Amino acid sequence: MTSLKGKTALVTGGRTGIGFGIATALVERGAKVVITARSEDKLRAAAAELGEDRVLAVAGDTADPEHQRTAVAAAVDHFGSLDLLVNNVGGAVRSGRRLVETDVTAYRSTIELNLVSALTWVQAAWRGWLGEHGGAVVNISSIGSKLAVPDGSAYGTAKAALNHFTRQLAVELAPAVRVNGVASGTVLTDFTRANIEGREDKVTGSIPLKRLGAPADVGAAVAFLLSNEASWITGHTLVVDGGRLLHSR
Rank of each mutant, 00 (worst) to 15 (best):
P175L: 11
L188M: 05
A160D: 06
V116G: 05
T102Y: 13
D201M: 05
D217T: 07
G6M: 04
I111P: 01
A148G: 15
G6V: 05
V55S: 10
V177M: 05
D53R: 12
V55I: 12
V27F: 04
G19P: 10
E40M: 09
N163V: 07
W129A: 13
N139S: 10
K42M: 13
A46S: 14
F79W: 06
S142I: 03
S117Q: 08
G185D: 00
P215E: 01
V138C: 09
L173Q: 08
G135E: 02
R108K: 12
R211N: 06
T36Y: 04
V11D: 05
P175K: 11
G14L: 08
R44A: 10
W232N: 06
R54N: 13
L162H: 04
V240Q: 04
A216P: 08
A73T: 14
A170F: 07
V177G: 07
G152Y: 03
N163R: 09
N180E: 00
T204Q: 07
G30K: 08
T36K: 01
G213F: 02
R15N: 13
T204C: 07
G156D: 12
A25C: 05
G90N: 03
R244G: 00
I207C: 01
Q123G: 07
T110Q: 00
F191A: 14
F20K: 14
G6S: 07
A118N: 02
I18D: 00
A57P: 14
K202F: 13
G131P: 09
A223Y: 02
S3A: 09
K159N: 05
I196C: 00
A9I: 01
L246Y: 03
A74S: 15
G235E: 00
A154R: 07
T105E: 15
A63I: 07
G156S: 12
G134P: 09
G185Y: 00
Q123V: 09
P65F: 06
A148D: 12
N180F: 00
S3Y: 04
R44L: 11
P65R: 04
V149R: 12
M1W: 08
R211V: 03
E40C: 09
V100A: 13
V203Q: 01
R211W: 02
V58M: 09
E28Q: 14
N114I: 09
V177I: 12
E101Y: 08
V100E: 15
E112A: 13
V72S: 08
A71P: 02
A230V: 04
R167L: 14
T120N: 08
R178T: 10
G91L: 02
A23G: 07
H236C: 02
L238F: 01
N163E: 15
T105I: 14
L50H: 10
D151L: 07
L225S: 00
G96S: 05
A106Q: 10
R38S: 12
T36S: 13
D77Y: 09
A48R: 13
S109L: 14
A23S: 09
S95P: 08
A136P: 04
A136Q: 01
V182L: 01
T24D: 10
L113N: 05
L226G: 01
L82I: 05
S248W: 11
S81T: 14
T166F: 00
V89E: 04
H67F: 15
L226W: 02
L4M: 04
L245R: 00
L173C: 09
R97S: 12
